[in-house]
């Protein structure tokens, strides 16, 4: 690839990304009333999206091979329990991550 071709490639990555980020705001502008279906979607979508993101993070975990996803599921359980107990975002995230790292280093080697 020449430098120009590299620049075009990177430029297309930027263009595609920005298209996906800006499109909803371009289609449903501030000045016009947002259609009621889109308002409904905007209201119910976020909870589904956060569920989707959790699964997205786990997409490369294979349940049937290797560690069977045990370190991931145990650490998620620790994260969730810490959070339900103390409801301190940083504590839950740090606790879950440390738990995962310890499991990888000492248990599931």
């Amino acid at each position: 690839m020449t430098v120009t071709q590299q620049m075009v490639t990177i430029g297309l990555c930027v263009l595609g990304t920005m298209l996906t980020r800006f499109l909803p705001f371009i289609v449903f502008s501030e000045n016009r009333e947002t259609p009621s279906f889109i308002q409904y979607i905007g209201k119910y979508l976020p909870s589904a999206v956060f569920g989707m993101l959790v699964i997205y993070c786990l997409k490369d975990v294979s349940i049937f091979q290797g560690t069977h996803g045990l370190p991931e599921f145990l650490s998620i359980a620790v994260t969730a329990m810490l959070h339900l107990w103390k409801r301190q975002m940083l504590l839950s995230i740090a606790g879950g991550t440390v738990c995962y790292m310890l499991l990888l280093h000492f248990v599931f080697i």
Partner: peptide, 10 residues
């Protein structure tokens, strides 16, 4: 895993 933990918390 810090990212996974963050999305779980959120």
């Amino acid at each position: 895993f810090v990212m996974t933990a963050m999305f779980v918390v959120i």
